[in-house]
Simulated scan of single mutants.
Amino acid sequence: MIATDGRPTTTAGSPVTGHRLDVPAPSFAHLARLSDDTGLFEHARHAIVRREHGYCTDDVARGLVVTSREPEPTGAVLRLAECYLAFLTHAQDARGAFHNRLGHDRRWADESGLGDWWGRALWGLGTAVARSPAAWIREEALVAFSAGAVRRSPAPHAMAFAGLGAVEVLRRHPTHPAAAALLADAATTIGTPQGDPRWPWPQQRLTYASAALAEVVIVASQLRHDGPLLDSGLRMLAWLRDVQLRDGRLSVVPAAGWGRGAVRLRHDQQPIEVAALADACATAATVTGDPGWETGVRQAVGWFLGDNDVGTPMWDPATGGGYDGLTPHGPNLNQGAESTLALISTLQHARRWS
Rank of each mutant, 00 (worst) to 15 (best):
Q270G: 00
G259W: 01
Q269S: 14
T283K: 07
G296V: 09
D290P: 01
A280K: 09
Q269L: 13
A280C: 14
G259R: 08
Q270C: 04
E294Y: 02
T295R: 03
G257L: 01
V274P: 03
W293D: 06
G292T: 10
A280E: 13
G257P: 01
I272W: 05
E294T: 11
I272Y: 08
R264P: 01
T283D: 11
D290H: 10
A276G: 10
D268F: 13
L265V: 01
G292L: 06
G257Q: 00
A285Q: 07
A300K: 03
H267L: 10
V297C: 03
A276R: 09
V263Q: 11
Q299K: 05
A278Y: 13
A262I: 02
Q270R: 06
L277W: 05
Q270T: 06
R260C: 00
P271K: 04
Q269M: 15
Q299T: 06
A282D: 14
T295L: 12
R264A: 07
L265K: 13
R298C: 00
A300H: 07
V301L: 05
E273I: 15
G292I: 11
R260V: 00
T283I: 15
C281N: 11
L277R: 00
T288D: 12
A285I: 13
L277T: 14
C281M: 15
V297T: 01
D268K: 08
A262Q: 10
V274Q: 04
V297E: 08
L277F: 04
A275T: 08
D268S: 12
T295A: 11
R260N: 00
T295V: 11
C281Q: 09
P271A: 12
T295G: 06
G289F: 11
C281L: 14
G257Y: 02
E273L: 14
A284Q: 06
A275D: 06
Q270N: 01
A276Y: 08
E294A: 10
V297D: 05
G257H: 02
V263E: 08
E273T: 14
V274G: 03
A284I: 09
D290M: 12
